[in-house]
Amino acid sequence: MAKQGWDEFEIGSLLRSFDGKIDKCPAHTPQRDRSYSENNSHVASVADWRLIKPVYNKDYCIDCQFCWVYCPDVSIISRDKKMIGIDMDHCKGCGICVEVCPTNPKSLLMFPEQADEETELASWPTKDEEEE
């Protein structure tokens, strides 16, 4: 597929999302169990779009899943009703997850792309009384 030029794409051809036989609906298969084909955008990355990145602090998270539902790039990884992390290959750094995070202090904050995650987690802001 990748060997073809941009103008060698025939009208009516299919872009296959998955490799192999799919006999059941993908809605019943979690992302981690799918065998993505090389044409699925899941195998690509938009990480280089990002100027700022979200950092996730597990200590304050209440697993409300607001960030999951409002993430435009399917980059919040949730398993068994728990938030477990951020998919940094697909995050574009829009910052919506930080805005919708209801905890005080927020369990997600934006930092410059080059910031060191460990350092930022160590100096996480404390509860802000005046915010509400």
């Binding site: 993908p26 298969t29 899941h42 690509a44 697993d63 409300c64």
Partner: peptide, 20 residues
């Protein structure tokens, strides 16, 4: 929302829509 978050997304990331 917790129940909703167990959904297996059928729309993938790394699409080229603007951030946000």
């Amino acid at each position: 929302l917790k129940e909703f978050s167990t959904s297996a997304d059928r729309f993938e990331g790394a699409n080229l829509l603007c951030p946000g």
